[in-house]
Design a protein around this nucleic acid. Sequence first.
DNA 1: TGTGGTGAGATCGTATATCATTTCGTACAC
DNA 2: GTGTACGAAATGATATACGATCTCACCACA
Lengths: 237, 237
Amino acid sequence: MALSPVAAPSKSQLAYDFVKARIENSSYTPGYRLVLGAIASELGVSVVPVREAIRRLEAEGLVQFERNVGAQVAMADPREYHVTMQSLSVIEGWATAASAPFMTADDLARARAINDQLAETLQHFDPVAFTRLNLDFHSVLFEHCPNPHILDLVDRGWARLRALRESTFSFVPGRARESVAEHAHILDLIESKADAVELEFAARNHRLTTLDAFLAHENARPRTEHPNQLHPSQETP
Amino acid sequence: MALSPVAAPSKSQLAYDFVKARIENSSYTPGYRLVLGAIASELGVSVVPVREAIRRLEAEGLVQFERNVGAQVAMADPREYHVTMQSLSVIEGWATAASAPFMTADDLARARAINDQLAETLQHFDPVAFTRLNLDFHSVLFEHCPNPHILDLVDRGWARLRALRESTFSFVPGRARESVAEHAHILDLIESKADAVELEFAARNHRLTTLDAFLAHENARPRTEHPNQLHPSQETP
DNA sequence: TGTGGTGAGATCGTATATCATTTCGTACAC
DNA sequence: GTGTACGAAATGATATACGATCTCACCACA
């Protein structure tokens, strides 16, 4: 056994982590051309492991690939944020509801503490910190989801959001305060062991409201014809 | 330009299609060891494109990969069917509801025709044909879903199901008749332009009921403590 | 001045070769 | 008889090499 038993990350994994991190922290912006040889030499490896890493990222939707042309960071499309948030609303909503029964009192306390920090951040507003804490908060809510597929999809959704600069809350400053309040409401639902569907839709609508706020903010004009929110208890024929 | 302008599928793509097809038609069963060199020589290519194909399939969840050990077809775990159906219930349910407003009268007629064929299949029961028609039916329902991410996830969910032998309806013969009736109900909801949430939960519960039937059938004893179904209109505090 | 061809450079696609790791059989010791 | 250790074979991981394809700038010609 070598001197470093924990070490030995594969070159392929190294390249994967490297590129993914750069996409998520916006070193590589959407549309950025990913040249295999350049990345390979930057990491001191050959192109083969880099190609494999790119393939994985392609399958995850973080990069787009074209034959004989190359790879580039995905999501130049402005609708990308829209569809990603929409997908995440559905998937994360369910994950949150499914995770709730397994949350301990300690988890709840932890979530409340994070939400308190979020509230504090509102004073001296720091979009980056807010976004990070926001993920921490929601992670506590869905982390016990017993379905690993769903959990994986939630992770990928958040990864895509991180890759989008627009996901930062800085673009919709007024939204942050509402968001903290909605978090509190969701925590109340969990604590009172509310109906699963009600919780699912609370979590779903929380995200859709954020999306609507973003769209309204971007278009400068409030679009009331964008009824993304849904209500599970609305009357049925 | 060469003589065959449409030809020239990359070796990597070739390997991807090859392995994926074999997984889905159960030539490669769950747990099957995917030896890179063997696949490469079978296709007459080198191992490099095969590795890339395996990486993509890994990211899609069809194969599992372990460093320095190799790849094998995923889902040896019996819970895999459970979680996949659960995921699909959520995602396909939403996709169906989101697709409904874009369905034309012709689409509806097509769906009804397929469901009629499904009903016919019940006479001289053919599990393979039923499973194929079942996918055709649901494809018509969700194909207009405007969110490409969700659509992609639905496709992947069905791909995983195809990879599972147990997904064939043959294991729950009694379920098929109910299934056809539920299809008809869903079509009625679409035709009457029912509420999106109601439709979403009808589609979701349709799948969860199939899952419950499978679980009950497999365990020989009906498990009433498996309340997978949810009702959007149930009373909330 | 605009348009189309052409060639060089950049980059991708794949094969071959070599090194590293794992696995498995066999033999030896207790 | 059982367990362990050693080694060979199989397989995966990566590097290098070369051919294929694309991009783009430049130049000839209308």
